[in-house]
Design a protein around this nucleic acid. Structure first.
Length: 110
DNA sequence: ATCATGACCATCC
DNA sequence: AGGATGGCCATGA
């Protein structure tokens, strides 16, 4: 594969600070592919079988909903990790999403 | 090569 | 508010 797109996604996801989350759309937009937000999700799926452990648990949808929690080893692992990071999760969604939201555009900004 | 599905998002009804 | 539709594009059969 070695799809550069995925590498970009992984890179950003790995840059996500602890206790922060981001959305697929934001990442996609950061890569200049806002319309390919789905590809970000696919990248996450590969994340588990790709590069050294990608904190995919810090990536949620635009609503702060843990859409992909069922894709983790134990589905509950996602909220477990988030809770451990300091991110409160309730009913499969991130609390204070706006507060914990991490904007990749601010970190990339070349 | 085509068909169907998907860790999404935006729009329309 | 909530369901349905389209679009985007990669992956697997």
């Amino acid at each position: 594969m070695n799809t550069n797109f995925y590498e970009q996604v992984y890179e950003i996801v790995r840059l996500i600070p602890k206790g922060r989350v981001t959305s697929y759309g934001a990442i996609a937009k950061s890569l200049g592919a806002a319309k390919s937000s789905r590809m970000v999700g696919h990248a996450m799926r590969y994340a588990g079988t790709a590069h050294p452990t990608v904190p995919a648990h810090r990536v949620v949808n635009s609503s702060g909903l843990l859409t992909g929690k069922f894709h983790f080893n134990p589905p509950k692992l996602m909220e477990e990790l988030l809770a451990k990071e300091g991110v409160k999760v309730k009913d499969d969604k991130v609390l204070n999403f706006k507060q914990v939201f991490w904007n990749p555009l601010e970190e990339i900004t070349e």
